[in-house]
Design a protein around this nucleic acid. Structure first.
Lengths: 219, 219
DNA sequence: ACCTGAACACCGTTCAAGT
DNA sequence: ACCTGAACACCGTTCAAGT
């Protein structure tokens, strides 16, 4: 039913242009999302307003609405673009290490965009980069011998852990003076612990495949 | 440093009074929180404004600010009051069943107050009802033979799962027409699955105590 | 001690009007 | 096709002024 095609925004994020004033017709949907990404990195999604976005675009008013139906759609695009920055671990890893690494990559990326994890918790639709990640997880878990019901539930449950952890971590570090001065290197620890708990739980399911390395083929 | 004592709000939630106009000096901090709880049940924390709160209190303007420093403090009180509605499972359960039941209780309660799980993700301070829950979890895990480093991390990680799951579930059911008509009885399934994964992971830690029922004493 | 109501500086969104 | 700027209906918060 969506008329306007949903472009696979692959904005480079930090690389895009600065607040310089635009001429007529020089703006694109990707630049709007790019500006939103920059703003999110700097001040967090919670402090991103359509008016600040206009300022970041060098536009005197609300023409971003020409490229985006409403703010929520913009945030969806931002969220999916951020997911696009999450690298897939090398395919020759054993499934348990692959999963752990993927979600740790996800955490690192999301910590750089305050508020995005929180938004992703409320918006799960089928955006392209999200679909890419979920497909990859499915493949890996299937190769590891888990059936789709296990793999579907695993990815949802790990996403809850990831988004929940990042949201909470960002909130508490922000509450105690912005700089990374905090004692919290143990946030990493806690997240890793949660991941391990789930992975160990998976291993104890479908009994075998506990110690076996199971390196997967390249195709 | 906090001058005004933080009362252990134990508001009954659904039982408190309706929008009738108040006289002079009839308002209390607990009634403010009670009104906020009612509003949250009905329309969610996201749609709770200080002006609507005033209306719910039958007050023509912003006198709620006399009882609450700002909106965030109000939301903290609401959050902790909601946690106060979570019942502790009977102490004669084995630790793994106790944990599972507690978090399922938590999920049920939080699903009744849209937005509260999301708020709790950003605010972890030492409120009384939250402290009660965390203390209870610590005790149970300690009795089960886990050391404090495991138990501390476990409760954080399970809280992430709980708050993340509830936030996501509420968002997707809200996105598809409010009534509980959805096919999602499997939200329960997914959450239970995540809980089991973590509990199984715990069991595979400190090797033994896998099958043993370990009923705990009454003190 | 508690309550009022107007004010300030913001929001998201819409829309006639411009080029 | 794209951009503007004012307008609408909201926000959270503050504060002089009332009782």
């Amino acid at each position: 039913m969506t008329t306007r095609a949903r472009a696979t925004v692959t904005v480079t994020g930090h690389a895009t242009r600065s607040p310089r004033r635009r001429g007529y017709g020089e703006l694109t949907r990707d630049e709007v999302v790019g500006a939103a990404l920059r703003l999110t990195r700097r001040t967090g999604l919670a402090n991103l307003s359509m008016r600040q976005l206009a300022a970041e675009l060098g536009s005197p008013s609300m023409n971003a609405y020409y490229y985006v139906r409403n703010k929520d759609e913009l945030l969806d695009l931002v969220g999916d673009a951020v997911l696009g920055e999450v690298d897939l671990p090398p395919t020759d890893l054993a499934w348990d290490r692959w999963i752990a690494e993927l979600f740790q990559n996800g955490r690192t990326v999301l910590l750089g965009y305050p508020g995005v994890a929180e938004h992703l918790l409320r918006r799960v639709e089928g955006f392209p980069n999200e679909a890419r990640l979920y497909q990859a997880i499915s493949d890996v878990l299937k190769d590891a011998g888990f059936d789709t019901s296990v793999s579907d539930r695993t990815q949802r449950v790990m996403a809850y852990l990831l988004f929940g952890a990042v949201t909470s971590e960002l909130a508490t570090t922000a509450a105690a003076g912005e700089p990374a001065t905090m004692v919290f290197g143990d946030d990493d620890d806690v997240f890793r612990f949660g991941l391990d708990l789930m992975i160990d739980g998976l291993k104890s399911r479908s009994g075998r495949r506990v110690g076996r390395p199971t390196p997967r083929a390249s195709s």
